[in-house]
Design a protein around this nucleic acid. Structure first.
Length: 180
DNA sequence: CCCTGATTCGC
DNA sequence: GCGAATCAGG
């Protein structure tokens, strides 16, 4: 998958809402949680409840190459790759019960950005078509469930420097001063 | 064993 | 830049 502006926006919002990388990855689809985390890092939004911390404890014992010995299994060998009609279509991934939203109330803030992040639906094979491809010029406000076929972005003319149109900028950015 | 994010490194 | 593998803590 490609990291479009919309997807990055999604990542930022979901991450900001406290969604876990796995959930974000599931919502976005086509990416693993590793990809999400990696992207998050590159975006510079790693600031969140980190379960662990590698530094500090030992300054004189830097095992800086723990991952060096891996990746020695190219053995790509051989996939016959049967060229029959691709009947598969996600074949019921069965998100398991674990995929259920454990977060009771992610962002109750009235004025906060809130993506309708329903994790219930299975991964839609039909990736959310980017209605507003332009990104920088069209509103990236998510309309509907990211996994629903009908999901789309606002696509209206975005404000300068904002990912959303004026209307959605108001929804997204107005602090909890005079919510709905 | 499951989860989580963090880090590193090959591509 | 991207993401898998891996690490490390709960």
């Amino acid at each position: 998958m490609e990291w479009t502006e919309q997807r990055i926006e999604m990542l930022r919002k979901l991450w900001g809402q406290g969604q876990t990388a796995s959930q974000i990855a599931t919502l976005l689809g086509g990416v693993t949680r590793n990809a999400v985390i990696g992207k998050a890092h590159r975006l510079g939004l790693t600031g969140r409840p980190s379960p662990i911390k590698r530094e500090g404890t030992e300054a004189a014992a830097p095992r800086r190459k723990p991952a060096a010995q891996r990746r020695q299994q190219p053995a790509v060998a051989a996939m016959p790759a049967p060229r029959h009609v691709a009947p598969q279509a996600s074949a019921a991934p069965a998100p398991t019960a674990q995929a259920e939203p454990r977060y009771a109330a992610p962002a109750p803030d009235r004025g906060e950005i809130r993506v309708e992040a329903q994790v219930a639906a299975p991964k839609a094979p039909s990736a959310p078509r980017v209605a507003a491809q332009a990104g920088s010029k069209s509103c990236s406000w998510p309309v509907g469930d990211p996994k629903q076929p009908g999901f789309h972005f606002c696509g209206d003319a975005a404000e300068a420097g904002r990912p959303y149109c004026a209307h959605h900028c108001g929804i997204a950015y107005h602090r909890k001063s005079e919510a709905a």
